[in-house]
Simulated assay, not measured.
Amino acid sequence: MGEKRSCGKGIFFDVDDTLYDHLQPLREALRDVLGTGGEFPYEEVYHRFRYYSDMLSASHGAVNAQGAERDLQDMRVKRAQLALAEFGVHVTDPEAARIQQQYLERQFRITPFPGVMDLISDLQAAGHVVGLITNGPERHQMAKIKALAMDAAIPSERIFISGAVGYDKPDPRLFAFVNERTGTKASQSYYVGDSWRNDVVGALEAGWTAVWFNHRRVEPESEHQPHYTAGSYRELAELLLA
């Protein structure tokens, strides 16, 4: 059973690189495994790393579901190899696996971007339904949500992890599932996320209002048009609280 229909908007946030700096654990993993220095183009590599993560996940299908651990690990190794190869760095399967392991371990030592908690609190006080929608295995993503203390800010029934639901972003069925469970309507639902493929395209194809959190100032990957673009939590607050 879903919640009763809300009079406010449904406003849902992505987690990785939307609520916290997802580049930091990758930067530390690359430094540890490959010995990359301060001049290494970490942000550019991160963008391609996320691009290949989304692309390979889509090609595998339901890579975050229970029982798909081998596909998930294969995707994680290949995304590192493909991203780094674009910058002239070629890593073996064992090296890519080590990067992945270090990257995962550092994802639990994270803090929210400044302004995250205040915005969530203000949106809730204004009567909106506020929640999270994130891709990934349930246990892994929930550990990050707890590390960010988001489990204390957002009710568990408004936290949606693709590995538990059975659909990965950008599948519109995931967004429809969220509407059903939270009593919200697609026409009154907003999704805030950094990923072009998963968050912008996913929200648009589900009939939601897409808010692209483009704080890394990257270029669009297709002809889709997000309804809004913001580069900081100050800009997000001005938009969502208007």
Rank of each mutant, 00 (worst) to 15 (best):
A143T: 10
H140P: 00
Q225Y: 09
P220F: 07
R106P: 03
G193V: 05
S57H: 13
E223S: 13
Y190D: 03
F40D: 00
K78W: 14
A85W: 00
R216E: 07
S189H: 02
L19P: 00
P220W: 09
V63N: 08
M75D: 06
D151W: 04
D21F: 04
L84D: 05
E157Y: 13
Q107P: 04
H90T: 13
P172A: 05
T229L: 03
V63Y: 12
A242N: 07
F49A: 04
A206H: 02
D168I: 09
L236K: 02
T182K: 06
T92V: 13
E44C: 08
H90M: 12
L34A: 09
F213T: 01
R76G: 01
A210H: 02
I145K: 03
P226G: 07
A85N: 05
V15T: 13
G131S: 11
D71N: 00
G38Y: 01
A176L: 08
E28G: 04
A58N: 11
Q81S: 02
G231S: 12
A65F: 11
V89H: 10
L236V: 07
A242Q: 10
L148G: 00
Q188H: 06
G202S: 03
L148I: 04
R98Q: 12
A164P: 00
Y167R: 06
A80G: 02
A126S: 15
G183H: 11
E95S: 12
G88F: 08
A186I: 13
N135W: 08
E28T: 11
A68P: 00
L148R: 01
E235R: 00
D32L: 08
P137A: 15
A80S: 12
A62D: 15
T111I: 05
V165H: 10
D122H: 06
S59P: 01
D32E: 14
D54Q: 14
H47E: 15
D171N: 05
L174F: 07
L34R: 06
Q124I: 10
L82G: 02
R216I: 04
